[in-house]
Design a binder for these strands. Structure first.
Lengths: 354, 354
DNA sequence: GGTGGATACGTTATCGTTATCGTTATTTCG
DNA sequence: CGAAATAACGATAACGATAACGTATCCACC
């Protein structure tokens, strides 16, 4: 019963034959280039419709040397921080006629290089790279052959790429200052991946404030940027838990893993140890106590990055570098400031999952 | 200083010229087809290396009529359920030489149709569709032109696609039975999207067990499958909270949104109302009380789906339909069974984030 | 020495689309 | 009314890679 469609997809030639015109005319009509009569135009459109014709993107790309595809590379798609960025990017890309190719590199620099190569093979018109884990030299070499590049949280290579950076340093300084004002003195930094540029910025923020007060980090613990990383850090800290009173975490996942372990070990948060995360992933507001964190407008970030990329593809390199500020979201893993408790409550309401 | 690369990427012809052979020979060497002398082979490889040659994927695809690209469509990339599936799929696709094009359709059936069209334009070799939201007829029409299709959680169209289904019904029956044994009688189903096939299966499970006990749902509330959905459901339930004692949720996000609202409203979980989620996203084990849920091996699911898809692309339609069973993960949003409390504890330890 | 068969290459044609240029018919205007 | 401009369309040739086929060379073996 089912009319199995011809094994071969219809081409311009097929449409042309059906409409009684030349392939060129079909192309003209379908691309709205003009130069086709009204009656002809109608016939062509009908024929295309009837055959369910879809232009072959390969042939088009081969001809035009543009793929209308852009790539986005993230270190770990399972980390809730990144899907929101991807969504933002896609929201901008699609209406502009671009398809987004999102690639997960599972926190592996080798893979990052490899994926940039694959994207080059696919002739993407541009790439957004989130939190590149490659060292400077390899990163440069890897992005250099690409037509347009936007780097998120990686200041390097401004000559070859647009950049969008989160001002982690300022954000971290704000929380740390606050904690010091509240009497905390013995800080730990759960540092995340050693090769992370954002991680270095965060550390700078912590250390700047600490040294201003004549303090320094009690521990600086690298870890994977996921729940397991937090669990590992907790294991390292538990023996000497009495000697610390605040942990600044590279991201929320680490903070949440840590909190869970502290809870099981009977370490009181925030009374004994304050915990600060980063990113404000949805889970941060759901746990008990809710996590104090630096909120980053993730979807906006993705949208901005994609707009910048499309600009660069179009040859408009207007914005070379953008810096965005994180928002300090005070929740209950840091002590409430008596004088500010009302303001905090208000803020938290605004910060609740919408 | 920087030697700006030629604007045009090198082609086989360039490599051929550099090596002093014909383009065909270059192609042969690079594809390991044999039929090239040892010395020639060396020269070609050197030339390709020197020029940093990368074959143009468009031209190859145009010639071979295969893109070595597969698509995966998910309703919402921000829902933690899906990134793990994507990761699983990618883990299988990449070693097999396929690039994965993942598309987010933001819970919109129109968009789903549109994206399937875009993937068709890109001539993907196959598609995996997670939780299709399209109705039967439109889904069939949309997948029919595709070369190979695997549907996740959608039993339809077995003639045209491989399917992998989670046996939600069985999983839900298990929890509901348990809750009834524990004395719960007044059930609510937070149903998720009305057009979800998986949602219907879950409802069937709940209703089957209830009717076996002469009961029926107190409320059946559709909602978006995210935190907001849970918040909305909570708003609907709060006025009559005294009349219910268990809520079965379409997924964990809904359950978590609901819990947060119940907590703020002073409704005790599980003493007053038991809550059950579905998926076992990482946040489920982090909140307090930790959420009882149906665990789905998400990454495995993605891997299986991709293996099935690659089989179908290769023309081996071995497995037509697979059913996988969810695991009931008992945590603290459902009452502990005295006799079983030790077993539960053991189980929970195994279920902790690794 | 001539025939057969490897082996190592080059030529040609093709995938589907479209820019370029050419051709033909139609209109416009001095 | 005739010349020139305009419009509508077609033929050709690319884009880059590669099957299919052709050719040239060399060795083996009768």
């Amino acid at each position: 019963m089912d009319v199995k469609p011809p094994l071969r997809a219809p081409t311009v030639t097929d449409v042309a034959a059906a409409a009684g015109v030349s392939p060129m005319t079909v192309s003209r009509v379908l691309n709205g280039r003009g130069g086709a009569g009204e009656e002809t135009r109608r016939r062509v459109l009908e024929a295309a419709q009837a055959l369910n014709y879809r232009p072959n993107a390969f042939a088009q790309s081969l001809k035009n040397d543009r793929s209308n595809t852009v790539g986005i590379i993230v270190p770990d798609i399972v980390n809730p921080f990144f899907p929101e960025i991807i969504r933002g990017a896609e929201l901008v890309a699609r209406p502009a006629g671009y398809t987004l190719l999102s690639c997960n590199v599972v926190e592996d620099p080798e893979r990052e290089e490899e994926v940039l190569g694959t994207l080059l093979d696919k002739r993407v018109d541009g790439v957004i790279i989130c939190s590149a884990r490659l060292d400077e030299e390899r990163l440069l070499r890897a992005i250099q052959p690409h037509r347009a590049v936007v780097l998120i949280n990686r200041s390097a290579a401004k000559r070859f790429a647009g950049t969008i950076e989160v001002d982690y340093r300022a954000g971290v300084e704000a929380v740390v200052s606050r904690l010091i004002a509240q009497g905390r003195r013995r800080f730990v930094f759960a540092a995340g991946p050693a090769y992370s540029h954002g991680g270095r910025k965060r550390r700078e923020g912590v250390e700047a404030v600490l040294s201003r007060h004549g303090l320094s980090l009690v521990h600086d613990v690298p870890c994977t940027p996921d729940l397991q990383g937090g669990i590992d850090v907790a294991a390292r800290l538990k023996p000497s838990a009495a000697e610390i009173d605040a942990v600044i975490c590279y991201n929320d996942l680490i903070a949440l893993g840590l909190m869970k372990q502290f809870e099981m070990a009977g370490i009181a948060v925030p009374d004994q140890v304050a915990i600060v995360g980063c990113d404000d992933i949805p889970a941060a507001s759901l746990v008990s106590p809710p996590l104090t964190t630096l909120r980053i407008a993730k979807q906006d970030l993705g949208e901005m990055a994609m707009r910048m990329l499309l600009d660069r593809i179009a040859g408009r390199n207007a914005q070379q570098g953008i810096v965005i500020e994180p928002d300090l979201i005070l929740r209950a893993t840091t002590p409430a400031d008596a004088a500010q408790s009302h303001a905090d409550a208000t803020r938290e309401r605004a910060a609740a999952p919408i």
